[in-house]
Amino acid sequence: SIVDYIPVIQMNASIVARIDCLRSFAVAAIENNYCRPVPDDSKRIDIKEGRHPVIEKQLPAGESYVPNDIFLDDEEQQIIILTGPNMSGKSALLRQTALITLMAQCGCYVPAASAHIGVVDKIFTRVGASDNISLGESTFMVEMTETASILNNLSDRSLILLDEIGRGTSTYDGISIAWAIVEYLHECRMRPKTLFATHYHELNEMETSFRRVRNYNVSIMESENRIIFLRKLKRGGSEHSFGIHVARMAGVPVSVVKRAEEILSELEQSHEKQELTRPVDDFINKREGLQLSFFQLDDPVLRQIRDEIMETDINNLTPVEALNKLYNIQRLLRK
């Protein structure tokens, strides 16, 4: 009866599965130039030229992943405050650190030049934004619930990754919560290793008051009112998030982007003087109308269409000529 052979079959299946897993580790390591990690009993994570194992495989042909170093311990550099523009790669850096740590403890080679990984018992993450409509929980409530779970369950060997904590509420509330969380993680006796990505540049001030907090930023280069993402981690905090630049890249109408730049300039001047140079009511009274001008869009095709419309003598236009004009405009838009 086959029942008599079930234990043997199960044992063979387990052995084959283990061989398959280990072979997959070996193939991935050879094909992707992974290195052998060095796990130990220390409380430090020291990764040289670490890469994200998924993102580096999805890059366009000819483009290489920009590697970065990460060092965390419980004595000198327990908490890294990571700032930088949107889309610069902060979240990818958090995720690759967690993946390299996890892969090392699975017995797999890792995407890095070298990696010394002190044993980690828990990896906590608060990354991304989502709500829970079925339970009546807002995005911010979900964020705080998950953060509370992290703070109540951490250990001295935990790795904590926090991405933009506090963004779901008002600016001052968010800064206060983020600051208090970093302070708590620094002062608690367990000293968990932490990567904290944020757009609250006020948190850069913590380095001067808290011995194991360090500021880093993901570098960019500005060129002719454009930003180029260098994806390289460097020491020191960042002063700007370049959100308006990203809005322009995403295709937000030019009139909206220009208006945002005007308002940003006014707010920055007000912040420097600690008062509003122009009242908020003035912003509202001079706001961009909801009906955006068709001719404000900086697009060669739209300019060509504008010129053709402006040159048309509507009073003497026959129905056939009008149809021909519409056909020409439609042809331009389909190019």
Rank of each mutant, 00 (worst) to 15 (best):
I55M: 13
S1N: 06
S130F: 09
R95T: 01
L94M: 00
L297C: 13
L161G: 00
Y200N: 14
L22S: 04
R44K: 14
S223Q: 14
D4N: 09
I117G: 03
Y172Q: 06
S223H: 15
G174T: 03
R214S: 06
G289T: 10
N132G: 03
L159C: 13
R44Y: 12
D40M: 06
S238Y: 14
G84Q: 00
K90F: 08
N315K: 03
G107I: 11
S238I: 10
S114W: 02
H271K: 06
T194D: 00
L233Q: 04
R212V: 02
V3N: 11
L135I: 11
A178L: 14
L276P: 14
M221K: 05
I70W: 04
E268H: 08
A322Q: 07
A112D: 05
E275H: 12
P85C: 03
N315Q: 03
T169W: 08
I284D: 09
E239W: 10
T208W: 09
G251Q: 12
D299M: 04
Y109G: 03
L159G: 06
I15E: 11
V120Q: 00
E288D: 05
D74I: 07
I123E: 10
F71L: 15
Y200P: 11
H271I: 07
S158I: 03
G168F: 13
Y172F: 08
F242K: 15
L94Y: 00
I80R: 05
A197P: 02
S238K: 14
D281N: 05
L185A: 01
E202I: 09
S88H: 02
E262N: 06
I305Q: 13
N217T: 11
P111L: 01
F229M: 06
A250M: 08
I305V: 14
E143K: 01
P37A: 15
N153C: 08
A28V: 14
I2W: 02
V256W: 04
C21F: 06
V257E: 01
A115Q: 00
S238M: 10
K234N: 10
I133Q: 07
S114A: 10
F196G: 00
Q274A: 15
G243I: 04
L203H: 02
T198N: 09
A129D: 02
D74P: 05
L185E: 00
K122H: 07
L93D: 04
D20Q: 06
E137L: 14
V246N: 09
N324L: 06
E31A: 02
F294G: 04
T312Y: 05
G107D: 15
P300D: 15
N217H: 11
V246G: 10
L102Y: 13
M249T: 08
S1A: 11
R235I: 05
R36W: 07
L99N: 05
I150P: 10
L292A: 12
I165V: 03
T312K: 04
L276K: 13
L93G: 07
F196Q: 00
M11F: 11
S130A: 07
L333Y: 12
I160L: 02
V301F: 05
T194R: 00
A180Q: 08
T169E: 06
P60A: 14
V254N: 13
S265I: 13
N132K: 07
L162I: 15
L22M: 04
G236S: 12
M11D: 09
V27H: 15
T125A: 01
S91T: 09
K234S: 05
F25S: 09
V38C: 13
I100N: 12
F294W: 09
Q304W: 13
R23I: 01
K122G: 07
E183C: 13
N328Y: 14
G128L: 03
I314V: 12
L22C: 06
V256Q: 03
